[in-house]
């Protein structure tokens, strides 16, 4: 009985979020709508951004090389020309809005609407501009190889934990120029300090840890950001992301892990946030308070001593490739061989 009620409550929540997305869609104004060019089997990428012009060339190049067929962007009031740059790309559609990121559930309402409109029946990847998707065999097999395999295996969603990368020295000295591979400036990561809790309601795993927990939240580990993500989903118009891309409804989509001892296939999102640009963002965002939990993280960063802060320790691992991540136990090939 309890489970029936719970199932019903989650169903209501899903419907509510869909309605909310429809309402919030009125905040979106198309700048470049090329969605008519989307082919039936295109892989789609959805992304919300604000003032990320310098990162865009590499971002687009990276995901084009993986095989993304069409990009759908929501430009949340950029003032650095990001919107115009994207509108000039032949495989991008761009919407703009000046409305509150926070009140659009950190952009997810807008993305949910676009996914509902344009993502139905497609494999969709939802990432931020500083997130780079890596998966088993990604250097030899395009993303379509993965999605074809997922289709053949009747799998609808694919987990990719957020892996924070950081520079050798202080964050403020991690120089970045447009077109560079940000991983070159941020080669380090934490390999084995993550904690996992199951969420009995949504059935996802809640993963925390890594450099941000270690440096920003050592005294309040519960406040450390969630690192579990499910960015790749064969979308259906009835699906919604319930909280960022951490979890979905219907909740069966959150079962991207095996409970009987085996390993399911999984990937990582290389998180290249900690470039020199982060320092400026931290100052702006901690004032704007438009991010999760009132930009807690940006404020922690400001407190931790913005300019001089570093994450590197003698135990940091230098990023090499997906095989390294797999042997460290961060991702798995599962039975994709």
């Amino acid at each position: 009985m309890v489970s029936v009620l719970r199932t019903y409550r989650l169903r209501l929540e899903r419907k509510r979020r869909l309605l909310r997305a429809a309402r919030k869609s009125r905040e979106l104004r198309p700048v470049a709508d090329r969605t008519a060019r989307i082919r039936r089997d295109d892989l789609l990428l959805f992304c919300t951004l604000r003032n990320e012009r310098v990162r865009l060339p590499f971002f687009l190049a990276y995901y084009r090389a993986l095989g993304i067929g069409h990009f759908l962007f929501v430009d949340n009031g950029s003032t650095d020309g990001s919107g115009g740059y994207l509108a000039g790309q032949p495989d991008c559609s761009v919407w703009t809005t000046g409305a509150s990121y926070k009140r659009a559930r950190f952009g997810m309402d807008w993305i949910t609407w676009l996914q509902r409109r344009h993502g139905h029946g497609h494999w969709t990847l939802v990432v931020d501009v500083d997130e780079f998707f890596v998966y088993p065999f990604c250097e030899t097999r395009p993303l379509r190889a993965l999605t074809d395999w997922l289709d053949a295996s009747s799998i609808r969603s694919f987990g990719a934990m957020l892996l924070d990368l950081y520079p050798d020295g202080p964050v403020a000295e991690a120089r970045y120029r447009a077109g560079d591979n940000p991983v070159d400036s941020l080669p380090w990561f934490d390999s084995g300090n993550y904690t996992i809790r199951p969420n009995p309601v949504y059935r996802n795993l809640w993963i925390q840890g890594g450099p941000r927990a270690r440096v920003f939240f050592p005294h309040r580990p519960a406040h450390a950001p969630a690192l579990n993500k499910i960015p790749l989903v064969r979308w259906h118009r009835s699906y919604v992301y319930a909280s960022s891309t951490h979890m979905l409804l219907p909740r069966g989509l959150n079962l991207v892990y095996d409970e009987w001892g085996g390993e399911k296939a999984s990937g990582c999102l290389l998180h290249t946030k900690f470039l020199d640009t982060f320092a400026d963002k931290a100052a702006e965002e901690s004032a704007r308070r438009e991010h999760y939990a009132a930009s807690r993280e940006y404020r922690a960063y400001d407190r931790a001593g913005a300019g001089t802060l570093g994450f590197r320790t003698p135990w940091s691992e230098r990023y090499e490739d997906w095989r390294q991540l797999e042997s460290l136990g961060l991702i798995s090939r599962g039975n994709w061989a």
């Binding site: 993550y194 996992i196 991207v256 892990y257 409970e259 001892g261 136990g329 961060l330 991702i331």
Partner: peptide
């Protein structure tokens, strides 16, 4: 799976 490993896609 790999014994003793707890990760995003293995949580027995």
């Amino acid at each position: 799976g790999r014994a003793g490993l707890y990760m995003q896609s293995r949580y027995p």
